[in-house]
Design a protein around this nucleic acid. Structure first.
Lengths: 344, 344
DNA sequence: GTGAAAGCGCTAACAT
DNA sequence: ATGTTAGCGCTTTCAC
């Protein structure tokens, strides 16, 4: 045995090294790698031995440069710590696995700069397609990517243009459902802890709330108090509700609608820490209906959206890439004790 | 303006195209891209205009093939839907961002085959380093990667060899803490819903439980009932506790220790669905102390591990890559109502 | 400051 | 069935 454990800095073995060791040409090595049936058994075995001996790992960059093919799909999500998005990611993986693709994931943290950076990174690496939960309404950069010939599917956001596919949930309807419920429960005011309006979902949910208020014959300006936070997680919720409480000397708003469940959890946590009663005093409605919404100390009323299916469908569109498609799912209100003590 | 919107199938523009349009050589284009200060202002502007006009995006494969450098770090986690791991991922990102690297993420779902596949994928793509939460004790494949000159850091798992760096939490101590607590609360039996022993963390936690029982002067075989599940999430917890309840006609075990918080949440959910009382009848202890553990209907006693810091530290070791390091954090028990009704 | 040319590792014609 | 070779897009000497 003459295996040489080279120093860690040694160049990776290449097809040429394998070819030399196996006494064949590089073409044959390539064939063993890609079309083994074209190679005689004896030769193939010899090459495979050489590959093992050198622990050769093909260089994906070189292969891709030459062959142009790639089996990787890129996805940029808003927040990887939000179960809603990781469930979606799982949906994507499940679908693309059927086509033998693998998923590379990145999180923009709702920052358009980061989104651009990752999009760029994926594009430079030549991914075969891109799934994006946009962090801003401005989608020129996505159109530019499409112009360059890459397939893009908007996730969890309707497409403002027929040229880009999208899979979304009706956020106006979602906001409406939440507000209608709170109004029906007799609340005269709704505090809406929302995200930045640059995020489409946030704008739409507000529009839905306004619609519900109007349809109830009331004035949105009088009913709705909107607070905007930049980080759509528990910390954001804590911040928002704290500012309200601080301002009002712990007088609690009668109804709070949160842009997502994580934010609602932050609100609940803050209330509890301050020793403030929620049941009977403050109704809370979240959004997404993440898995644990029903398991919370105060089970959370929430607007349910398909998680897994959203990702699966988007990936499906990407994989079958024909003319752009635009799918819209309908949300559903799930009432629990956080807004209705009488429930479950 | 003579911008040509080529068909979607058109080849991506290359440096050659840019060079032609700007009337310079490809070398100059490359310089504009990588060392702009070496290029005369006028030339640089001309090249930049050409880049914009063609919406040129450099081909990362080609660059990497030639230059050998890469700014991407790969991480393979056990379960991307577990907040413990996504918090860790955030820690990794925060650290590598300091060195201008980006993170590509993948989830093995505790499946060694998937782990291997992603590891391979990352290696073929020439990542500059690899962070892995191993899905099995067998780490020969990781050693092989190290032999090929790539830096690998084990995450959330102690390294069985000095050659591979690792950042871990003492899982024996963690298991011990949980069991000691349950014994101190007067429980004579402990049902441990554990993951497969091929996962190091699971084995160690069991060892810790056994140790605690022995130190209390009791016989582990009599005290401990271990159930093994393959999917370490809420669904796994539901499955495990259901099998116990079905078998025993809803006689509930007096103390249940779960290999992680997600599993514990599944147990709680099942108990609630079956209308079985937990407080005063069944103590539950989880592991990880994920963010929402304290917000649950029945706040969950849990063994806290550093999340963010684990990832941050591992990435730090990778970035400073000298001799292998082995870091071990100590866990901490957080007692809540799920195991101690008298608490908070 | 800029151009010409070699070559990274691989695949796919094309020869043999 | 196997070998030879061109070339993918880029960076990097080395000339000028």
């Amino acid at each position: 045995m003459t295996t040489t454990h080279g120093p860690r800095t040694a160049r990776r073995p290449s097809v040429t090294d394998v070819a030399k060791l196996a006494n064949v040409s590089v073409g044959t090595v390539s064939n063993v790698l890609n079309r083994p049936e074209r190679v005689a058994d004896a030769t193939r075995t010899r090459v495979e031995k050489a590959i093992a001996a050198l622990s050769f790992v093909p260089n994906a960059s070189a292969r891709q440069l030459r062959a142009g093919t790639i089996t990787t799909v890129g996805a940029v999500l808003l927040d990887i710590r939000n179960p809603f998005f990781t469930d979606m990611a799982r949906g994507i993986e499940d679908r693309i696995a059927l086509d033998d693709r693998t998923l590379m994931l990145a999180s923009s943290d709702e920052d358009p700069k980061r989104e651009m950076r990752y999009l760029r990174l994926f594009e430079e690496h030549g991914v075969s397609g891109l799934l994006v939960v946009p962090s801003t309404t401005e989608i020129d950069h996505l159109l530019a990517i499409v112009d360059r010939g890459l397939d893009v599917v908007l996730l969890d956001s309707p497409s403002p243009t027929p040229r880009i596919s999208s899979v979304a949930v009706d956020n106006i309807e979602g906001g409406k459902l939440a507000a209608q419920h709170l109004l029906a429960m007799g609340h005269e005011e709704i505090t809406f802890i929302n995200g930045p309006h640059s995020i489409r979902q946030c704008r739409d949910r507000l529009a839905g709330v306004e619609l519900a208020v109007q349809e109830a014959g009331k004035d949105p300006a009088e009913v709705i108090t909107e607070l905007t936070i930049s980080s759509l997680d528990a910390a954001g919720g804590e911040l928002a509700i704290s500012s309200v409480l601080d301002e009002q000397g712990d007088a609690v708003p009668s109804a709070v609608f949160c842009v997502n469940d994580l934010v609602a959890i932050g609100v609940q946590r803050t209330m509890r820490r301050r020793g403030l009663e929620m049941v009977g005093h403050m109704a809370i409605v979240g959004y997404d209906d993440i898995d644990i919404a029903s398991e919370l100390a105060l089970p959370l009323t929430s607007v349910r959206q398909p998680h897994h299916e959203l990702g699966y469908r988007a990936a499906d569109i990407l994989m079958t890439a024909g003319t752009p498609e635009h799918v819209v799912f309908q949300p559903e209100l799930v009432v629990r004790a956080s807004s209705d003590p009488a429930s479950g």
